[in-house]
């Protein structure tokens, strides 16, 4: 696989100031070395997508940024503060929110409790009325058990609950996985609207057709490294390469 100069010099972003800077990030699951020196930047107000095949290290990258994987090395700077040694609760309180691939809806909590579970970490979160405006289904299901919702509703709930925390940097791990096209479209609209509201979003996706509707820039992850990166404007020119990277 062609390895570009990405590992040394991340693609420059076009929009606002640098909010996340990842340098030489390595991570381990027990003895398994998963990330081998990840480098990339995310700028304020951008939607950046990590693309790559299954097992490439995309989810591990998000979990490492969030502090969920404790065995990690390198540097992660968020708003110019080093967070590589911070615990996940402290990272969350700095304004990073994570929506996991498996959604993480709690079965012992109803929809309202799930929605209100993450504490407000700073001002600027969306009020409930605005969240219900984005996801009207949730308002009708507030007293239902969280895991009784459909897959799409659970995904909406998983995104909705991190919007009220005041976190400005959202990490969404495969939000479209296993969902019907109409729901995928709705989630795409939501991401576009969140971007307009000023949220910065780091997205992990295998579905680059979906990603292309919302992303400003892309990084391709393979074998625990960033092997390529390009902007949305360069997507068409990189399509062949992308097909090769993703094996589609």
């Amino acid at each position: 696989m062609p390895e570009t100069a990405m590992a040394e010099a991340p693609v420059k972003a076009a929009t606002g100031g640098n909010i996340l800077q990842v340098r030489n990030l390595e991570a381990w699951y027990g003895e398994s070395h998963i990330l081998h020196g990840i480098n990339f930047d995310v700028n304020a107000g951008e939607v950046v997508t990590l693309l790559g095949r299954n097992g490439a290290g995309k989810t591990t990258t998000l979990k490492s940024i969030m502090g969920i994987i404790s065995k990690r090395a390198g540097s992660i700077q968020f708003n110019n503060q080093e967070i590589i040694r911070a615990t996940s609760d402290k990272i969350a309180r700095m304004g990073i929110a994570f929506c996991p691939e498996e959604r993480g809806i709690f079965s012992s909590l109803d929809v309202k409790e799930n929605l209100l579970l993450p504490p407000v970490v700073r001002a600027g979160g969306l009020p409930l009325e605005q969240i219900f405006d984005l996801f009207p289904n949730l308002k009708e299901r507030l007293s239902s058990q969280g895991t009784k919702l459909s897959g799409g509703e659970q995904q909406m709930l998983a995104i909705a609950r991190i919007l009220r925390t005041g976190a400005s940097f959202l990490m969404l791990d495969e939000p479209t996985e296993g969902l019907a096209p109409v729901i995928i479209q709705q989630i795409g609209h939501t991401i576009a609207r969140l971007k307009k509201e000023g949220f910065t979003i780091l997205l992990v996706e295998q579905n680059f057709r979906f990603a292309s509707t919302v992303a400003d820039r892309y990084y391709v992850v393979e074998h625990g490294k960033i092997i390529d990166g390009f902007s949305n404007a360069e997507l068409a020119a990189n399509m062949d390469k992308l097909h090769t990277y993703l094996g589609v």
């Binding site: 969030m66 969920i68 996940s88 969350a92 970490v121």
Partner: peptide, 13 residues
């Protein structure tokens, strides 16, 4: 919630 998934609850802050 922490009984079900302490890792995620911690990642909420």
């Amino acid at each position: 919630a922490a009984t079900e998934n302490p890792t995620l609850v911690r990642a909420f802050g």
